[in-house]
Amino acid sequence: MTAKWSTIDTIFGPFTVVVDSQGAVLASGWTAAADELLALIAESLRPHEIRKAADLGEVSRAVHRYHDGELDATAEVPVAQRSGPFREHAWRVLREIPAGKTVSYRDYAALIGRPEAVRAAATACSHNAAGLFVPCHRVLRGDGSLGGFRWGLELKRQLLDHEGGQR
């Protein structure tokens, strides 16, 4: 499969998105290096070739709109991630956490339907390849501290502030 990628300048720095031939996000994050994102894509979805595109249509527009303050702009953009049933379900649940709202890892595990699986819920966040489109930055530690984030804690703080998140 051939995929396309594009890097968009945002208020938080470069943001790169890799999309499949149907326009679903395979990976994304605050980096200018598309190659850095390829390693995050499940092997069954990983493209054999990627081509740079100046614009990714609706995906690029959604990224711009989010960073310009339309915080739900990425919610309807399709995402393609593969793993086991628990993790795939966990990623779908993450997409239901609205901008401006945060949850603890414990609350997130409960939303997934497995309140005892707090570590598994945290692991689902850490394996999320589609940053922003699957908003793992909205999950915090039980004490309200930031926890981890692939793109750095300072960026996680900035995203939550941008969204008016309650911590």
Rank of each mutant, 00 (worst) to 15 (best):
Q81P: 03
L40S: 08
I50C: 09
E58I: 00
L45Q: 09
F86L: 09
L94V: 03
P47V: 06
E43A: 14
T74Y: 03
L40W: 14
A53G: 09
W91L: 09
R61A: 15
A53P: 12
G57Q: 12
R95A: 11
V59S: 07
L45P: 01
V77G: 08
V79C: 08
I97S: 05
K52L: 10
G57S: 08
L45M: 01
L40V: 04
H67N: 12
P98H: 06
W91N: 01
E58V: 08
L94W: 06
E58K: 13
E96W: 13
R46H: 10
Q81R: 11
I97F: 12
P98L: 11
G57A: 12
R82E: 13
R61M: 07
V63W: 01
E49N: 14
K52Q: 15
Y66V: 07
A80E: 11
L45I: 02
A42K: 04
I50H: 06
A54W: 12
Y66T: 01
R82C: 02
L40A: 09
R65L: 12
A80N: 09
P85A: 14
R95Q: 15
L94A: 06
P47N: 04
I41R: 02
V77Q: 00
A54P: 10
I41N: 01
D72P: 01
R92A: 15
G69E: 07
E43P: 05
D72H: 12
Y66N: 01
S83Q: 07
D72K: 10
E58R: 13
I50M: 10
E43S: 14
H89W: 10
A80H: 10
A54T: 13
Y66A: 05
V79W: 01
A62G: 00
R51A: 15
K52N: 13
H89V: 02
L40C: 08
K52E: 15
P85T: 04
E58M: 05
R46Y: 11
D55E: 15
V59I: 06
R46Q: 13
G84R: 09
H64P: 00
V93F: 08
A73M: 06
D72T: 12
S83K: 05
V77E: 00
A90Q: 06
S83T: 07
W91M: 03
E76V: 07
V77L: 02
A42E: 13
W91C: 02
A80M: 11
V63I: 11
D68I: 00
L56Q: 01
T74C: 14
A75Q: 13
H89S: 14
R61V: 05
H48M: 11
R65G: 00
E76T: 15
D55P: 07
V79L: 08
A75G: 08
K52F: 13
E96G: 14
E49G: 05
W91K: 07
V59D: 03
R61D: 14
L94R: 07
D68P: 06
E58A: 14
L45R: 08
P98Y: 04
F86V: 00
P98I: 06
V77A: 02
Q81M: 15
E76S: 14
R51L: 15
D55L: 08
R87L: 08
A90V: 01
L45N: 08
A80F: 02
G57F: 09
A42I: 08
V79E: 04
I97L: 12
P85H: 07
S60Y: 02
P47S: 07
P98Q: 10
